[in-house]
Write a protein that binds this DNA or RNA. Structure first.
Lengths: 344, 344
DNA sequence: ATGAAAGCGCTAACAA
DNA sequence: TTGTTAGCGCTTTCAT
């Protein structure tokens, strides 16, 4: 019966039971907002106060509730990344460096798997938008008009990656797959290869490289380019069987461009098994330059993409935007390089 | 001045500007809570009302704000996964199936990278706890007392995975690394191998397998087991150089157990390069049974872990707990199997 | 440098 | 079946 207990039928709604900023503030003998400032903008607060609050935090084991903070400030410090498949090695470097760069600046990464096929993508987008992330990183370009519309409507900064397009939704960091296809033809041509083949995953970017490859080979006056399309995600196994298929349909090949290093490893494995000498009889070129490429026997020539740089730049874009820093550029082309090794 | 607007100094605080449940409710001509029910528990509202609300949602493009929902309901529908490294292939299957199982039930996955070394882990834990996830999945066991304390204090359901321990924090789904080490010795012994070696990553679980392997070999009356420890994460390259080292220090080996398939591929690559016949002269056994293992030449014998089952079970544990379903078990041993192939 | 008031967008608790 | 009220835990705005 201490005081003012004439409240009418008190509604109780106990929260999570966790320590709140209120508890910390009470223990420190200050107002909640002051405790908040001590934690978020320590420069604005007197030294003595800072100490009291930090002490109270340590004693209570307080961990802020960022759902509440995000709701109040309209800044979630959450970033979403959409990848075609979580277990594929290709984008993992990007996701890792993205995560590291974000974590270092107090942002948390959410992962969404879109699948190589664009089914169900709308539901995934809604699930992500409903968290109000401060940014969304797409591996690849968003093509579906519905998806673009939803992203635009949500007003969330978007970074498309691993590709270039003249019509990005917002920001873009990638490279030209068409240029890759061309460059690989040049590379092989310069090394005397004339009977070229491609093994490509059936995802959109691989096919773009493959088509550019064919066009460039044609332009160079080379004969028909043999093509095998394999389902994405690509595997060692599909590399093996694709080579088999090529050997049957187009004997006399002297070079194969594979749309992934795993595919290339499959080709090399099958070639070796059949007694086909790499590179003497057959040059093999991969894509992605995964860590193992350099250490294969023979070492695999591969198209190197700096996936870490892509992740870092994407993080930079989003954090800059979230912190309200002015942006000079919205598009970064990280390029690519062909790392020549023994397989060609 | 102008008129009798005696509202006391209206404080304005415009939100994100996005469509809110209020807007939807107003458009549908109902109370906000009713719109909320139409969306979350459609079974509780009349058919006509449901239609009106859905219509309003479609017309406004409303996407719920789950930060607000989570704050109000103390259920974030967010799950955090901690992995030692994002680009490692081993846990990716688990993360993928975890994500798929969670997404199917309306939960979102957050990723955190703990690193194989336990530095900075506390900060990461706080970052995660501050989001108030409905569950935390650890790949591996949480050993640091400080980490255990924080997790316990947070009161968030925890699933430790990929290992067994008599003292789990909460829930557990894994298998015995000690049993793996023993089983591999039995397997090799039964195939007539007597001069055994191990190549192990320097992470805790690999070392546990390696030690059990050594102990079992000793118990079986085999001579000294040659051991090479390589830094985690393991690579093809370290497999190659580890074999080199073994050949120099312990010639006459007839079997190598590698703590990852990538390591095993490195061993096979180096062996082939040096003209050592696998399996005739040297049996090679991997761990993880990654997709490529079966398609190598020779096909790689490997310890198969059902990483997808681990992810699914972890998701099940957490969702059951979040939905308040009774839990019968807290520990699941998914076991393992040795898949015999040509390399042994 | 510190505090009071208000409200972010939603749902639990209590009516009717 | 639908509505009213009161917060969830934090930060913005405004005042001192």
């Amino acid at each position: 019966m201490n005081d003012e207990d004439n409240t009418p039928a008190r509604r109780t709604r106990r929260g999570s039971g966790a320590v709140t900023l209120h508890d910390v503030a009470r223990l420190a003998g200050v107002a909640p907002i002051t405790a908040s400032r001590a934690l978020n903008t320590p420069g604005q607060v007197s030294k003595a106060l800072l100490e009291k609050v930090n002490d109270a935090v340590a004693r209570t084991g307080y961990v802020p509730n960022r759902m509440a903070g995000g709701l109040a400030s309209a800044r979630s410090r959450l970033v979403a990344a959409l990848v075609p498949t979580i277990s594929g090695p290709v984008f993992m470097e990007t996701v890792r460096s993205l995560n590291e760069a974000l974590a270092a600046q107090g942002y948390q990464l959410m992962l969404g798997q879109s699948g190589y096929a664009d089914s169900r993508e709308d539901a995934l987008l809604d699930a992500i938008i409903s968290r109000r992330p401060d940014g969304i990183v797409l591996t690849g370009i968003m093509h579906s008009p519905e998806g673009r519309k939803r992203l635009l409507a949500a007003g969330i900064p978007v970074v498309e990656t691993w590709d270039l397009t003249p019509t990005p939704i917002d920001m873009l960091v990638g490279f030209s797959h068409v240029d890759v296809g061309r460059a690989v033809v040049d590379f092989l041509y310069a090394r005397g290869r004339r009977r070229l083949a491609v093994i490509a995953g059936d995802d959109e970017r691989s096919k773009r490289r493959q088509q550019a490859f064919q066009a460039a080979a044609h332009a160079a006056g080379l004969g028909e380019v043999a093509v095998v399309i394999v389902p994405a995600p690509t595997t060692l196994k599909s590399g093996r069987s694709a080579l088999l298929q090529l050997l049957q349909t187009s004997p006399g090949l002297d070079a194969v461009f594979c749309s992934s290093d795993l595919l290339a490893l499959g080709v090399m494995t099958e070639a070796q098994w059949r007694g086909i000498k790499v590179p003497e009889q057959l040059a093999v070129l991969g894509f992605g330059d995964l860590e193992f490429a350099a250490d294969l026997q023979p070492a695999l020539t591969s198209v190197r993409i700096d996936g870490m740089a892509i992740g870092r730049q994407a993080a930079q874009f989003i954090v800059d935007r979230a912190e309200g820093r002015p942006v000079d550029t919205r598009v970064v082309d990280v390029g690519f390089s062909i790392v020549p090794r023994d397989s060609t």
